[in-house]
């Protein structure tokens, strides 16, 4: 169960976390609570993993090269392939999904050459082809996701 302060922190700071010397104090002033209350509430949200982090969100491909990659792996071999893929430091998301293409991961590397090399390596290590789906356009609206926090 989330306290009203936790809900406000979750909903209101998805866009404009203050860029100021004392951001938590600024938030406290905006919400009419103390800085310690804000810090403690963020601590709780963080410990309970309700926020993944506080910090700058970087636009895709502005640092390094990234791509979404999909693989169609036979069910019996999925655990081996999934583990192998997750082990690459260049893989930062890896999901199993309900589809013929059942393994979906995001690769990020410092250059396109490096990215292609990792994909070639994954293909040879796993024995399955990888479908490369780089982003062609990002339809991005700076509004944040509307959270429904009523239980």
């Amino acid at each position: 169960m989330l306290a009203p302060l936790h809900k406000r922190l979750l909903n209101d700071y998805q866009q404009d976390f203050p860029l100021s010397p004392t951001p938590y104090r600024d938030i406290a002033e905006q919400l009419g609570v103390s800085e310690d209350e804000v810090l403690n509430a963020f601590q709780t949200l963080s410990e309970q993993q309700m926020i993944s982090r506080i910090g700058p969100v970087i636009a895709p491909n502005s640092i390094g090269n990234s791509a979404l990659v999909a693989m169609a792996v036979p069910e019996f071999d999925l655990p081996r392939v999934a583990e192998l893929v997750s082990a690459y430091p260049e893989v930062n998301h890896n999901y199993e999904r309900e589809n013929r293409f059942n393994l979906w991961f995001v690769l990020i590397a410092d250059s396109e050459i490096h990215l292609k090399a990792v994909i070639a390596d994954i293909e040879s290590q796993t024995g399955y082809p990888a479908m490369l789906l780089p982003m062609l356009a990002d339809y991005f609206i700076n509004l944040g996701f509307e959270l429904n926090l009523h239980d």
């Binding site: 700071y13 866009q15 860029l19 309970q48 993993q49």
Partner: peptide, 22 residues
């Protein structure tokens, strides 16, 4: 950070919610 926000490298500065845990 302010300059990167202006150029679009930084989209926003956020407390990033974890949808799954919510």
């Amino acid at each position: 950070l302010a300059e990167m926000q202006q150029t679009g490298v930084v989209r926003r500065i956020a407390a990033v919610p974890n949808h799954y845990k919510l």
